[in-house]
Amino acid sequence: KVTYHVPNEEFARKLYKKAVDANLNVEIRVENGQFIIHIE
């Protein structure tokens, strides 16, 4: 399980798409202006 803290929405979207394309379980949320992405 990996967690990324991404300040940039564009990068967060790319990361999310890559994980989904790889059939990984992804959860994304915004906290204090940062995008928190959990990948399992």
Rank of each mutant, 00 (worst) to 15 (best):
Lys1Tyr: 13
Lys1Arg: 11
Lys1Leu: 09
Lys1Ile: 13
Lys1His: 11
Lys1Met: 10
Lys1Glu: 07
Val2Thr: 08
Val2Gln: 08
Val2Gly: 06
Val2Ala: 07
Val2Glu: 05
Val2Tyr: 12
Thr3Tyr: 08
Thr3Val: 11
Thr3Met: 06
Thr3His: 07
Thr3Asn: 05
Tyr4Arg: 01
Tyr4Ser: 03
Tyr4Glu: 02
His5Gln: 09
Val6Thr: 15
Val6Lys: 02
Val6Tyr: 05
Val6Pro: 06
Val6Met: 09
Val6Trp: 07
Val6Leu: 10
Pro7Glu: 14
Pro7Ile: 14
Pro7Thr: 15
Pro7Asp: 15
Pro7His: 14
Pro7Leu: 15
Asn8Ala: 04
Asn8Gln: 04
Asn8Phe: 11
Asn8Arg: 02
Asn8Glu: 06
Asn8Pro: 04
Asn8Val: 05
Glu9Trp: 13
Glu9Met: 08
Glu10Thr: 05
Glu10Trp: 09
Glu10Asp: 10
Glu10Gln: 06
Phe11Ile: 15
Phe11Arg: 06
Phe11Asp: 14
Phe11Asn: 06
Phe11Cys: 15
Phe11Gln: 14
Phe11His: 10
Ala12Lys: 04
Ala12Arg: 04
Ala12Ser: 01
Ala12Asp: 03
Ala12Glu: 03
Ala12Cys: 13
Arg13Gln: 11
Arg13Gly: 04
Arg13Trp: 15
Lys14Phe: 11
Lys14Glu: 15
Leu15Asn: 02
Leu15Gly: 02
Leu15Thr: 02
Leu15Cys: 14
Leu15Asp: 03
Leu15Val: 08
Leu15Tyr: 03
Tyr16Ser: 01
Tyr16Pro: 01
Tyr16Glu: 03
Tyr16Ile: 10
Tyr16Leu: 08
Tyr16Phe: 10
Tyr16Ala: 06
Lys17Trp: 09
Lys17Leu: 09
Lys17Phe: 08
Lys17Ser: 06
Lys17Glu: 10
Lys18Ile: 13
Lys18Pro: 02
Ala19His: 04
Ala19Phe: 15
Ala19Gln: 03
Ala19Cys: 11
Val20His: 06
Val20Lys: 13
Asp21Asn: 08
Asp21Lys: 10
Asp21Gln: 12
Asp21Tyr: 07
Asp21Arg: 09
Asp21Val: 06
Asp21Trp: 11
Asp21Glu: 13
Ala22Glu: 06
Ala22Ile: 09
Ala22Gln: 08
Ala22Tyr: 09
Asn23Gln: 10
Asn23Trp: 15
Asn23Thr: 05
Asn23Tyr: 13
Asn23Ala: 06
Leu24Gly: 01
Leu24Ile: 04
Leu24Lys: 03
Leu24Gln: 03
Leu24Phe: 08
Asn25Val: 12
Asn25Ser: 11
Asn25Ala: 10
Asn25Gln: 12
Val26His: 00
Val26Ala: 09
Val26Pro: 03
Val26Phe: 04
Glu27Gln: 11
Glu27Leu: 09
Glu27His: 10
Ile28Arg: 00
Ile28Pro: 00
Ile28Val: 07
Ile28Ser: 00
Ile28His: 00
Ile28Met: 12
Arg29Phe: 12
Arg29Trp: 12
Arg29Pro: 00
Arg29Asp: 04
Val30Met: 11
Val30Thr: 05
Val30Tyr: 14
Val30Lys: 08
Glu31Leu: 09
Glu31Asn: 04
Glu31Met: 07
Glu31Gln: 07
Asn32Phe: 09
Asn32His: 09
Asn32Cys: 14
Asn32Tyr: 06
Asn32Asp: 09
Asn32Thr: 04
Gly33Phe: 05
Gly33Asn: 05
Gly33Leu: 03
Gly33Val: 07
Gln34Pro: 01
Gln34Ala: 10
Gln34Phe: 14
Phe35Gly: 00
Phe35Arg: 00
Phe35Met: 03
Phe35Pro: 01
Phe35Gln: 01
Ile36Asn: 01
Ile36Gln: 03
Ile36Trp: 09
Ile37Gly: 00
Ile37Met: 03
Ile37Ala: 01
Ile37Asp: 00
Ile37Lys: 00
Ile37Pro: 00
His38Glu: 15
His38Tyr: 12
His38Val: 15
His38Gln: 13
His38Ser: 14
His38Ile: 15
Ile39Phe: 05
Ile39Leu: 04
Ile39Gly: 01
Ile39Tyr: 02
Ile39Ser: 01
Glu40Val: 12
Glu40Met: 14
Glu40Leu: 13
Glu40Asn: 13
Glu40Ser: 14
Glu40Ala: 10
